[in-house]
């Protein structure tokens, strides 16, 4: 695993990776976001690809340190689209992506700061009219305008997908472990600032934000008399046995069914 600077193959694949400022779960220190870093690693693994990094967001010392973590993975520069606090980065990103016109766009599946709704890849895909594929663990090949991807499914299963370019690929913890960020390249790399019109996120401005509370975990009661049974229980597929599929029902009937289920499960108490 070497840290060659930006892959400079002429006539190769144009790849962009959207990177955001992450946040350490214990100490809340700014860092490269884990999913985004995995997306960068996936992009760096492509043969003969020109990989560029794009970030849109607020510019402050913390975010600079975090963005430099991505440069430390072996990049000479990163495009930073400066946006004021509370701005919706979607329009600015769209404009930048239309100009850059990459053939493959990688993102993490969910940001570690801000809303973290995980919607950005879908909104971008919708606006660009590109297919969005999620949870990609590997890019097997890119040939003749089609990419062959491996999508991660629960319990280590993989699904091979073929997708036409341009496409948007989102990466979660199934992506490859990101390489170490090296201090030297991180310090030397440049953050080239781009100014694009900012749009205030009006919806966000109207919301009240409060820290999330840890959700209670459902206890799994295992009645096992042997080691084999305990192992089977631990490795068992998490599946709800008693589900039902409702088709061709009215919204009222659907709501009624959901309401009944929630009462049965004890989520609603009356």
């Amino acid at each position: 695993m070497s840290h060659d600077t930006t892959k400079q193959a002429s006539g190769g694949l144009d790849v962009a990776v959207l990177v955001s400022v992450g946040r350490h779960p214990l100490t809340a220190r700014a860092r490269r976001a884990d999913h985004d870093a995995r997306a960068v690693e996936l992009a760096l693994g492509l043969e003969a690809a020109r990989v560029r990094l794009i970030h849109a967001g607020r510019n402050d010392p913390d975010s600079e340190a975090a963005l430099r973590d991505y440069l430390g993975m072996g990049f000479a520069s990163l495009t930073r689209i400066d946006q004021p606090a509370g701005a919706d980065v979607l329009p600015a990103l769209l404009e930048a992506l239309r100009e850059a016109a990459p053939q493959l766009l990688f993102t993490g599946s969910r940001a570690e700061t801000g809303e973290g709704s995980g919607l950005l890849p879908y909104l971008l895909g919708e606006a660009l009219g590109w297919p969005v594929v999620t949870g990609i663990a590997a890019v097997e090949s890119v040939e003749g305008g089609t990419a062959t991807l491996l999508q991660a499914l629960p319990r280590g299963q993989r699904r091979r997908l073929r997708v036409r370019l341009p496409a948007l690929i989102s990466v979660d913890e199934a992506g490859p472990a990101p390489r170490q960020s090296a201090y030297g390249p991180a310090r030397r790399g440049t953050l080239s600032a781009e100014t694009r019109p900012a749009e205030t996120d009006d919806a966000l401005a109207g919301w009240t934000l409060e820290p999330a509370r840890a959700r209670p975990k459902r206890l799994k009661i295992v009645k096992a008399s042997s080691a084999r049974e305990r192992f089977k229980a631990a490795a068992a597929k998490a599946e709800g046995g008693g589900g039902q599929v409702l088709t061709d029902v009215t919204p009222e009937q659907g709501a009624e069914a959901i309401f009944t289920l929630l009462k049965e499960e004890g989520v609603l108490r009356h």
Binding site: H3, H24, L26, Q180, A182, G184
Partner: peptide
């Protein structure tokens, strides 16, 4: 190897990341 190439082997990178993020090599809550 570490500062320029980012090639600290095995658990090296993880330990260094922990030291950066949590000030201890094990990644425990400071």
């Amino acid at each position: 190897l570490t500062l320029e190439r980012g090639e600290t082997p095995n658990k090296g990178a993880e330990v260094l990341d922990n030291l950066i993020a949590t000030d201890n090599p094990g990644g425990f809550d400071p």
